[in-house]
Design a protein around this nucleic acid. Structure first.
Lengths: 210, 210
DNA sequence: ACTAGCTTGTGAATGATTTCACAAGCTCTA
DNA sequence: TAGAGCTTGTGAAATCATTCACAAGCTAGT
């Protein structure tokens, strides 16, 4: 099996979101063209993305919405529930701990950690803030699958090193510095500053162009 | 001038972050190789990214850190201050309004809006929550450059339509549904669910592979 | 002023991703 | 059963992005 491009995975997640809307509205089938129009891409792209994993449609008819939803959930690994821990109970960590999208369906927040004793013990959403010192012990017990890093930038690398040492293999990083991890750990950066800077660039170069 | 790839812009923002660290530590020059090693890319990539905009280095020596910082800030359009409004003062909107990275340097939060009367009037960070109804009037007065959408998914498209009608050209969307905008509006989606799903996919397919 | 030792900037080559274009297959109607 | 009208799945072509490889140019030491 050839390696799957990140862009493909991202689009599958996108399609899934649309399909869930369609299902909620009771639409039973959908064509690659319709899905493409909504997602701002082309029908060939939609079909190619899916064809890397099998064939899910019926020629002449399109895709059956519930079946395609299931197929994409299988592909993305969303049929099981993943346990997530959040490190850092500041503004962003706290917001994420209470974020619906996290607790729904496939992702359960099972731990929230902070180094500030004043925060330890307070409840945020469904979880109670635990002491940062307990991180390693909890990881070896709870075996969480994914860690979300929401600590200040200057503490982020140290936290990531501890997570890696504790055998975490997937990290979502909200600190605005890029972090070093070994190859067998997947890390994804969500960087507000970068997103705004890309918008600033588009505004700037757009003004030049017009 | 040929169009610039998003990946290039994203890396420039990355380099900028490293360079600021280097400057803080007082290092005066840096080579493309050093910058590449930190950013997890190649020296040729660094040079190609920069070469789309001019030539900023000295052969045999590398780049002067403060000069390169300035050059990248020029490129990204960060030498002016951009005004940002946030729509939705829920958990995420509130966290963003108080987020340091937003208020520092190039991005000023000049407005925060919510439809819930209970929230209107409360202070979050430097701004006071204003009534959603005032959005159009404020936009025509303050002329903000960028809008950040943090409302629930089912309200997001309506908010975006209002922003577009009010002549906003750059939007950062935190709602977990993809939204429709005309071509002359740049919209970027920051989607927690998608990020987690990509991690889940990597964990799933990694387990298959090993 | 010359040589050794770096490093940039950039065409050319390679690799990856997207788009094209069409045969194959399903459904419906007569 | 045959034909019209769709839509999928997929090699081949085209486009886009990254890496290679090297001439050109700077600095420092002699």
């Amino acid at each position: 099996m050839k390696p799957i491009a990140e862009s493909t995975v991202r689009r599958l997640s996108h399609y899934l979101r649309f399909l869930e809307e369609f299902e909620a509205r009771g639409q039973h089938t959908i064509s690659s063209g319709e899905l493409a129009r909504l997602g701002g891409t082309t029908s060939a792209q939609v079909r190619k993305d899916l064809s890397a994993f099998g064939s899910f449609g019926k020629r002449g008819l399109g895709y059956t919405v519930p079946d395609l939803i299931n197929a994409i959930r299988d592909i993305l690994g969303l049929q099981k529930a993943w346990n997530v821990i959040i490190i850092g109970a500041g503004k962003i960590g706290a917001a994420l701990a209470q974020f619906r999208g996290f607790n729904e369906r496939s992702f359960n927040v099972v731990g929230l950690y902070d180094a500030d004793p004043a925060k330890v013990g307070t409840r945020l959403g469904r979880v109670i803030v635990r002491d940062d010192d307990e991180l390693e012990r909890d990881i070896s017990e709870l075996k969480p699958d994914i860690a979300v890093v929401c600590v200040p930038s200057d503490a982020a690398q140290a936290v990531v090193d501890r997570l890696v040492a504790a055998d975490i293999h997937a990290i979502l990083n909200f600190a605005s510095v890029p972090l070093q991890t070994p190859d067998n750990v997947t890390i994804r950066d969500v960087n507000m500053a970068t997103e705004l800077e890309i918008l600033a660039f588009r505004l700037t170069s757009g003004e030049r162009a017009d």
